Amino acid sequence: MRQCSEHIDTIAAAIARAHAKLPNPAQCSSATGFDVVRRTLGREEIAIIQATRTEQVTGQMCVRTILAHVSGEWISSDFPVAVNPKTPDQIEALLTGARRYALFSMIGFFVEDDSIGLSDANAASRPSASAAKTQKATSQEEVTNPPPRGSDADQVLAFPKEPSRRRSKSHLAFVRAQGCLVCQRSPVDAHHLKFAQASTLGRKVSDEFTVPLCRSHHQALHRHGNERAWWTNLKLEPLQVAKELWATSPAHSQAGEASPFSETVTSPEAQRQ
């Protein structure tokens, strides 16, 4: 899934102008900061579009944020959310905080109050002004004896654990030994299905979500831009093929390999696959 338009020079310049107009983050709370950022970007003709979506494979919920400029240029980012609170009010507060954090992180604006933008999910438990002295008197005890991990508050506020991203050179070699999924020709590239996992900065999806594509069809897919639509037009199910290849991969039987599924740093050429 593409994260930006083909060109971003105009929107980048508009965001830079907005940076110069933003106040000191230390003077804002997460709520007021969100409104300030929204108004400042609006003056630079940048619209904020936010919506939730669920990953097809992992079931992970994400908040997708798109900054769209009047020129037609845009950039986007996905922020994973662990939605496991018990009440609708907690879910609403959690998503509100996630939207704030996602926007702040895209433009580099971080407020000191509610620094991760998710504490509103536990707003009901905040003490009133009359209880401030009591809270201050017991704060030392709370630090000395912190609540056990796994409490309800931890479940609401904790960042979700990202699904593991396996790396296996032997599996990629196995995929490259197959014929092109579209035309059955060889040689092929091991193409990573970008929509199989939530996008993260500088990290490809797991090697288990790879399918063989000849260079011609590989380039055609990247030129198309919308990967899901490209596969749909061909009436192919690449995720199912990737799962079948992973299940039969010789990487699982290579006992002599020290870490067949280790995370590795990929080269710029491999990042484009």
Rank of each mutant, 00 (worst) to 15 (best):
Met1Pro: 09
Arg2Asn: 15
Ile8Arg: 10
Ala16Ser: 15
Asn24His: 12
Cys28Val: 08
Ala31Arg: 12
Phe34Lys: 06
Phe34Leu: 11
Asp35Pro: 00
Val37Tyr: 03
Val37His: 00
Arg38Glu: 13
Glu45Gln: 14
Ile46Gln: 01
Ala51Leu: 14
Thr58Cys: 06
Glu73Arg: 00
Glu73Val: 02
Asp78Val: 06
Asp89Ala: 07
Ile91Val: 15
Ala93Pro: 00
Leu94His: 04
Leu94Thr: 09
Leu95Val: 10
Arg99His: 07
Tyr101Gln: 14
Ala102Cys: 10
Leu103Trp: 05
Ser105Lys: 10
Met106Thr: 03
Ser119Ala: 11
Asn122Glu: 11
Gln135Ser: 14
Glu141Phe: 13
Thr144Asn: 12
Asn145Ile: 06
Asn145Ser: 09
Pro147Phe: 04
Asp152Trp: 09
Asp152Ser: 08
Asp154Gln: 09
Gln155His: 08
Ala158Tyr: 06
Glu162Ser: 12
Pro163Ile: 02
Arg166Glu: 13
Phe174Pro: 01
Arg176Pro: 05
Leu181Gly: 05
Cys183Ala: 05
Gln184Tyr: 05
Ser186Met: 11
His191Met: 04
Thr200Phe: 07
Thr200Glu: 08
Ser206Asp: 03
Ser216Lys: 13
His224Ala: 15
Trp230Asp: 01
Trp230Gly: 00
Trp231Cys: 02
Leu236Gly: 03
Gln240Ala: 12
His252Val: 00
Ala255Pro: 00
Glu257Ala: 06
Thr264Phe: 11
Ser267Gln: 14
Pro268His: 01
Glu269Ala: 14
